[in-house]
Design a binder for these strands. Structure first.
Lengths: 135, 135
DNA sequence: ATAAGGGTTATAGTAACTATAAGGTCAAGG
DNA sequence: CCTTGACCTTATAGTTACTATAACCCTTAT
């Protein structure tokens, strides 16, 4: 089926994940231990390739490695309901929305700060003052 | 002027920053070394109080402790132009906007994923499939 | 006197990597 | 054949901004 014929560097090029990070994922058990060449080099198959892409894509959506570990194990149990997966996505959506809310508030506040700097010396700078006070 | 009359716990209550974090800030030089009572307890003045509020507020705006260290040292040199502070705020605003962009993209993508879950079993789960593939 | 609720220090752990050191392997060119 | 350079290996330490733990000291009330 899948031949184990890519070195870690090749896998890195194909997935955009650095070798050192791939080894790290193996170490924490996100990736299975790679088979080795005679000289001890790690060798990877297309299955590994897909798994890494899955990880990268999930990371890009803001899932933690812990989340991804769960998603991967869910993905491996093909017969079970996908409610768990859906729940994880929903939960992540919640988190992203909450962060969006905070960031939007930050943006407003920074805009306000930036607008109120009159360009004088620090003694008169409203920014420091504003940041020191409750408001 | 300012009396040094608050314990670390009182300061913590007033600022919403935990004692352990306050000690940490002192250790990394964000706060000056506190004066001590005879028995070795840290004692804080209103100046410290304001400095901590400044830190907390800046943190809430997304500044890193490194940024805050710079802001504080800028703020300490009262005679200088506040252009440096303003630039930092501008830079931070940029960063916040960039994060907002990323998060909005994430939100869209997660919404799309969530919508495509039909509630079957994992084998047929579009979410897993989508996460596995480039698209 | 003692117990509860502070305070003190030092050390280790967290997430998700990144950086460094010190060495082994492999293919190409002189 | 030898060397050079790019790649691979491992182990260890550093990063950010804390949090958790242990083991102990101080203060106050009962």
């Amino acid at each position: 089926m899948h031949k184990n014929n890519h070195t870690i560097g090749q896998l890195a090029d194909r997935t955009g994940i650095k070798p050192v990070t791939i080894r790290y994922y193996e170490k924490i058990g996100l990736l299975p231990e790679a088979t080795r060449s005679e000289s001890g080099y790690r060798l990877y198959s297309d299955t590994d390739h897909f798994r890494l892409l899955f990880i990268r894509r999930s990371r890009a959506l803001g899932f933690s490695l812990g989340d991804i570990r769960e998603l991967l194990s869910l993905a491996d149990s093909q017969q079970e309901s996908c409610a768990g997966v859906d729940a994880k996505v929903e939960q992540q959506l919640e988190q992203v929305r909450s962060r969006l809310k905070d960031l939007r508030a930050m943006e407003q506040e920074l805009k306000r700060l930036s607008a109120c700097c009159a360009g004088g010396v620090i003694m008169d700078c409203r920014i420091i003052e504003t940041l020191s006070c409750e408001a």
